[in-house]
Design a protein around this nucleic acid. Structure first.
Lengths: 144, 144
DNA sequence: GTGAAAATGAAAGTCATTCGCAATTATCTT
DNA sequence: AAGATAATTGCGAATGACTTTCATTTTCAC
């Protein structure tokens, strides 16, 4: 979908800043913070304010164009929501993020909600661990 | 375990403020924010500082005496970690929290981590939905 | 083109949390 | 039990991630 159409779908005016933000969000790395986006955008247009980036990212996430993940303390991470639903497995040592999907877990979540009479609207599943590379490094360090 | 012993186990000095904080944490509601604790503690000792509560709660959570749950934006919620592991199902409408445990989900999480070669250290699973009471209210409101 | 309404940038404001530090206290040491 | 000593505290100021405000541009429907 062309970027202009996305903006119009949101009932917003098409501005150069919004186009630039979309450009960066869709062509950059898949996980990014508002700060990341702000910096990339700044490089191409030094006249942009970071409030504009925040504002637009918020709007995009409210309309499910991007997914916002807020884990305690640290800045919110975003990602373009085009792809299928998935959760994250994050390395606590190097911050590398792996995406996974597991329909079995999803199904069990629904089941739990139903058990308590809740209608499920959303969920957060974030796994934390040590990735293979960091595990290797750690055992190497221990052997030394 | 007596509160003094808990504090000594942490290699900390036994002070009246730490004892008071433990008192409040262990006898109050099971889920609480630092602000909640601060206010309860203030009622019994008006000479206590906010930072002291935060500092001690942080230490307690670092040593797994309490569990800290930080969801984006809002203040961190804590709970005494004595009980068995569980996750939360939170009502987005009235903020009521239901605890649940599901070993099947836990097992699948381990499996996912193993698939990617990670050793799992931690996880966050928070389900959001509308509780039975709020669902009833909502449909009543709609019918009006 | 024109003008009303929306968007923007810069700066100030929030809010939860953390820090710096001088004054106070708990726990040795003797 | 008194003093030494090192941790702890309360306060206010600092931080960091947003969020809002508002005067000034821009956009776009006519």
């Amino acid at each position: 979908m062309p970027h202009k159409k996305i903006i119009r779908d949101l009932n917003l005016k098409v501005t150069s800043q919004r186009l630039l933000i979309l450009e960066v969000v869709r062509n950059g790395p898949s996980h990014f913070t508002a700060q990341d986006v702000f910096e990339s955008v700044l490089a191409r247009n030094p006249e942009i304010g970071f409030a504009t980036v925040y504002r637009f990212l918020r709007t995009l996430s409210e309309h499910s164009y991007v997914t916002e993940i807020r884990m305690g303390g640290m800045p919110a991470r975003y990602e373009w929501a085009g792809k299928r639903h998935h959760d994250h497995l994050t390395c606590v040592s190097c911050a590398n993020i792996v995406e996974f999907e597991n329909t079995e877990i999803e199904r069990l979540q629904e089941k739990v909600a139903k058990q308590f009479g809740f209608s499920l609207t959303d969920h957060v599943l974030e796994l934390y661990g040590v990735c293979p590379e960091c595990r290797a490094k750690e055992s190497a360090a221990k052997a030394r």
